[in-house]
Simulated assay, not measured.
Amino acid sequence: MDLLRVTTIGFTKSSAAHFFGRLRAAGVRRVMDVRLHNTSQLAGFAKADDLAWFLKSLGGIDYVHEPLLAPTADILDAFKKRKGDWRLYERQFLDLMQSRRIETTLAPDAFDGTCLLCSEATPHHCHRRLVVDYLNAKWHGRLAVEHL
């Protein structure tokens, strides 16, 4: 069983040059956007349609939005807007992934060469880390994960 190379990245606190440079240097072939809202004006260069164009033009990288891997608005708002507790957010999001059965809905091979994108600058308190950790547990450690 070969390991599947997966990366994660956030776009906040990053210039476009640094963001796209990290993706190219890591050999990313596809960005999987795991944000619930990917069209916000506040996203700058990471707004969905613009991001897809930049990725393809600057690095030949494909783009896909995968809302199945995003938290619900209720879970996200409780944490972000109402300054909720990370442990509660984590538990709710893990329960959501389990109820969605993402490990059976998505194929492990689809993640090879893929980078999960969210807005958070670091993976520590971001659901993209929870997604790869959850899938890695369900897929018996098949994902070799690097947080860019």
Rank of each mutant, 00 (worst) to 15 (best):
R129E: 10
W139Q: 08
W86F: 12
K47Q: 15
D133L: 05
F54K: 10
W86P: 04
R5P: 00
R35C: 12
T7C: 10
A17G: 07
T114N: 03
D50S: 07
V64M: 10
R87M: 04
H147A: 07
R30H: 13
M32K: 07
L23E: 13
L148R: 09
T72Y: 05
R101T: 12
H147V: 05
A110R: 11
L58I: 04
D109S: 08
H65Y: 00
I9W: 02
L96K: 03
E146L: 06
D112L: 01
T7R: 12
L106G: 00
D112V: 00
H140I: 02
G84W: 03
D109R: 02
E146T: 15
D2S: 15
A110K: 09
Q41C: 05
T7P: 02
A52G: 05
A48P: 01
K13W: 09
A137L: 07
L96A: 07
P71C: 08
E66L: 14
D2W: 01
K83N: 14
T72P: 05
F45M: 11
F20N: 09
D112F: 02
V31W: 02
R128P: 01
K56I: 02
D50T: 11
L135K: 05
V31K: 00
L94H: 06
L23A: 10
P71K: 06
L58N: 06
F20Q: 08
F11V: 06
H18A: 15
E146H: 13
